[in-house]
Design a protein around this nucleic acid. Structure first.
Lengths: 343, 343
DNA sequence: GTTTATATTTTTCGCGCGTCAAAAGGCGCG
DNA sequence: CGCGCCTTTTGACGCGCGAAAAATATAAAC
């Protein structure tokens, strides 16, 4: 490789013997130039190691190749995992993804959306905070920028929503728990950050009633995204004061269950489906750590792969159609029961 | 606020009655214009909601306001946490941080550094993969871009290194374990991803020998960043085949310990410092989940705050000095023992 | 060999802002 | 009031690239 520094496209055009507009076309879409030309460009690229200035590119393009990925709370491995998959797919499709986390804060979510506007992204994949989101801000953003919502829905906002079917989660967990033992009570936060929590509780109530059973919902105090802590504190309380009537607990999500299991362990309560166990605990999400809880957590898994793939797919379609959104689409993926030892 | 769309700086200059170069100066550094002028600009800004085009800005500036933050594995909450703190400080200082994760892959780390070049960042905060890093690539990058390394050191690379003092971690854990019971063996991966692991092992050996004790290092198989899994599998093996001579285990890091504790639980081995416990387990890092392991994990905590603050500080100094690096500085922060119930 | 459709080149303009030099203006000070 | 310093204005240029139109080249089809 020659170490001659190429400083702009014109210079690269002259050393490669190809006109500048054609080079420009190549960088926008390598497939749009004739094979022989593409080969010559790529040969020159090997030699001279030129890269277009992304700022000059993005300034003039109608649409950048940027894609914003926004999650509510990156410290939750669920989001890390799904963000990783989404990132990968965007890169493979020739886009430039950028990851943002609102870290549980509305102000931060708002200012991320604000920054995102300046980035003039081709599209945005947004998992909103949920209840804590400033709905009007998100709504306005989605009107201006092609956006696909995932994980948490905000009704009517964005061009599409892709997520997991909360009813499917709860149907599987409740059905299994009832069949294999006794009916579960439902353990959740009083004011859940995430709208999925409400859907899960309602599904629980509906399913229990449909089976002729009496639903029992236990709501514990706590705000924010420190779910393990909230689950722990809540469990310490209910395990002490005897409010827990059922010996089977279905937690709204795995992170609460992690706290619950820690509390049960501390209190010397044996959890599991074996002989000698006093209670069973199950949850939803298949958090990456739920394999390593004590006992390992019986849970219901997201179809991470499907959710991330379909989110990206939906966004690409939206981008290709020029951001027109005839009808908002919603796509929910069913969950899969993961039997471990806690229930 | 008027909803008149301002499309460029010239237009904003005319509606605000201030010349364009002065407006430009203001956006580069609000403090560089006279107070009366600044007030008038800010008043106009309230009314018209104009924002400079970041692409046009960055194209022409000698240095952008971008800062790259690169971590090896974002699914590890340790990095999520420190990245969050670093992000915050960059934003407060008027920079535009962007977070990247190599997700444990050398290829990805390389291509992130490659992309980062195009971003022409003012500086980069890099926690390299460590052993898996392509040293020559990282080295070359650090020569071209002002870079501060954190968490994992690569000797001689980058303008500065900021991290935790591994000797301090191990000194505290070993001293405590010896004082409160018996001497620990050291549990680690055979080929650790992170160079800190090697430093911790060597510190362990040195400290044990210094106390007149015989070090015992247990190395378990496994590659990559799935530490919990590796710890679990390794523990299942050593807890079965009797290679474990000591009843006190010091894990190289918390994530291995999480796996270890899961294995011990599964095997019905009681872990803790109470009567009736068969073994003690401690580790290093104070992983956010180590409060919720069963039993809760005795560990040694990073000074997250100091590491993130000082990394950013070092980078800002580097940026202000124009990227000149007279001498590479290294700054290590001591750790703090966190007593919980596992040891 | 001619037609036709497609690809490429040439030319030219524009994007929005940074930066510079020279001229004009504001400000505090005595 | 007048001096000198510092800030702002004026006017102009450059950055690196995208886009559009018209001219030209290429390749396949007839």
């Amino acid at each position: 490789m020659s170490d001659k520094k190429i400083k702009n496209m014109a210079e690269f055009a002259s050393v490669s013997g190809i006109s500048r507009p054609t080079i420009s076309k190549y960088f926008n879409d390598p497939g749009s130039v004739r094979d022989t030309i593409r080969e010559r460009i790529e040969a020159a690229l090997e030699q001279y190691d030129y890269r277009p200035n992304i700022y000059a590119m993005n300034q003039n393009r109608r649409l950048t190749k940027n894609i914003g990925i926004v999650v509510p709370y990156l410290a939750d491995p669920f989001f890390t995992e799904i963000a990783r998959k989404i990132e990968r797919r965007c890169i493979d499709a020739g886009f430039w993804p950028t990851l943002f986390s609102a870290h549980g804060s509305q102000d931060l979510e708002n200012s991320i959306l604000d920054s995102l506007r300046s980035l003039k992204p081709a599209g945005v994949l947004l998992a909103p905070l949920g209840r804590a989101s400033d709905k009007s801000v998100v709504e306005k953003f989605c009107r201006d920028v092609p956006t696909v919502l995932f994980d948490s829905d905000i009704e009517g906002v964005g061009a599409a929503f892709v997520g997991s079917d909360n009813h499917s989660f709860v149907a599987q967990s409740v059905e299994y728990l009832v069949r294999s033992g006794s009916a579960p009570c439902f353990f959740e936060m009083r004011t859940p950050a995430n709208p999925n929590a409400n859907k899960r509780r309602n599904a629980y109530i509906g399913i229990m009633e449909g089976m002729g059973l009496t639903p029992e919902v236990i709501k514990v105090e706590g705000e924010g995204w420190a779910f393990e802590e909230i689950g722990y504190e809540g469990a310490m309380r209910v395990l002490s004061d005897g409010t827990l009537r059922s010996n089977t607990v279905l937690c709204s999500n795995d992170r609460l269950a992690i706290g619950f299991l820690a509390a049960a362990f501390e209190k010397g309560i044996r959890v599991g489906r074996d002989e000698g166990c006093q209670m069973r605990v199950a949850a939803h999400d298949d958090h990456p750590f739920s394999r390593f809880t004590c006992p390992s957590l019986t849970t219901v898994a997201h179809d991470y792969e499907a959710v991330s793939n379909h989110s990206v797919e939906a966004l690409f379609n939206l981008i290709e159609s020029g951001g027109t959104r005839d009808a908002r689409t919603e796509r929910l993926f069913p969950a899969r029961l993961i039997l471990r030892t806690s229930a």
